[in-house]
């Protein structure tokens, strides 16, 4: 178990399968990536591509029948000790969750308990992990609310979640997650349920907090626009596998996998889609849909939807290969793209 000094998380050949009596769903099938200290890695993909299962595997919150089949999840904690989270038991995870790895979720509306004030809930986290008394915990809670830039934080401490807007609640969630200064934050589509303007604020906030606190972020999203805002590196997933891995600037400059190309073409862009004459260009959509992971085609999983597919694509699943400077692609024709 060796890890480069500047790498905080290394997922290696992770397979998380959901086995039932009749079928085995290979939700995550051989995913490999590294996350560097203080950086943001975005995991992009459609629903069902395995991005959320990857994040749940890392924090040990898989629910049955999902289980890690094989692979390693190496994590370097604050004391520089490297552990394999794939083999960690519930007790080990309790020591890591919150303190070392924290997570925020998509639904800020339901991610807070409606019966307690936000101050109460953040305070609970702080008291739980830091052994502070009530007064100190409250002081620290206030600091956290100020850190996530909630206006008039002092008076919002005793607000109940329903008194806050979605954006404010997501800020509260972030405050809760960062209360114990974790070194890794897993953000599972944290801006999906928010208005576009609020999305930008939250992304901005996350970026600023990352600079201040130096944590690494694993950012799960299906929105490439968000990726451009926050990520350093991007992993594109399709049907449980990584199909492309590249630094963010290179990825947007040139896509080395037809799926990434398609995803990018699907992103609405006001300037591009609305022509001067007032006519609208139809927004591109990738034909077909993600195949069920219990019944993947024999060759490349994307081949049936791919306009670049050749006979060889349908014959054998391609492997993830080097596609130039610091990037990988799972496509036979990556050099032609």
């Amino acid at each position: 178990m060796t890890l480069d000094a500047d790498t905080i998380l290394s997922v290696r050949n992770l397979r998380t399968w959901f086995r039932t009596k009749y079928v085995t769903a290979k939700a995550v099938d051989g995913v490999t990536f590294d996350l560097k200290r203080g950086q943001t890695l975005a995991v992009v993909g459609e629903s069902g591509s395995g991005k959320s299962v990857t994040s749940l595997s890392i924090i040990g919150l898989l629910s049955r029948p999902g289980a890690i089949e094989s692979g390693e999840i190496l994590f370097r904690d604050r004391s520089e000790k490297v552990q394999d989270l794939a083999k960690l038991g519930p007790r080990g995870f309790r020591a890591i969750r919150g303190r070392e790895i924290a997570m925020i979720f998509q639904e800020p509306m339901t991610s807070l308990n409606p019966l307690y004030t936000v101050g109460d809930q953040i305070g609970e986290m702080i008291a739980l992990h830091n052994k502070l008394d009530r007064h100190e915990a409250r002081k620290r809670t206030l600091e956290m609310l100020q850190a996530v830039e909630i206006p008039d934080a002092k008076n919002r401490l005793d607000d109940y979640p329903h008194q806050m807007s979605g954006g404010m609640r997501q800020r509260v969630m972030i405050a809760m997650a960062l209360a114990c200064n974790p070194s890794l934050l897993i953000a599972d589509e944290p801006t999906t349920a928010l208005d576009v303007t609020i999305q930008a604020q939250i992304l901005d906030l996350l970026r600023r907090l990352q600079e201040q606190m130096g944590m690494s972020i694993l950012f799960i999203t299906h929105n490439l626009g968000v990726v451009a805002e926050i990520a350093h590196e991007v992993v594109v997933m399709y049907a449980g596998q990584v199909v492309e891995h590249a630094p963010v600037i290179d990825l947007f400059a040139r896509q080395k996998h037809p799926y990434t190309k398609g995803l990018l073409a699907c992103t609405p862009n006001a300037a591009r889609d609305l022509e001067p004459g007032g006519t609208r260009k139809a927004l591109y959509s990738i034909p077909g849909s993600v195949p069920p992971i219990t019944n993947l085609p024999p060759g490349c999983a994307f081949a049936p939807r791919c306009e670049y597919a050749i006979d060889a694509c349908h014959a054998m699943p391609p492997s993830l290969t080097d596609a130039g400077a610091d990037r990988l692609s799972r496509c036979l024709r990556s050099s032609e793209l």
């Binding site: 919150l61 995870f93 969750r97 919150g98 979720f105 998509q106 639904e107 991610s111 807070l112 609970e124």
Partner: peptide, 17 residues
């Protein structure tokens, strides 16, 4: 199954709490 219970688990809140 509600997100706030999952969120509590993700932040290591003890089961009894």
């Amino acid at each position: 199954e509600l997100p706030y219970v999952e969120a509590a688990r993700a932040l290591a809140v003890p089961t009894r709490v």
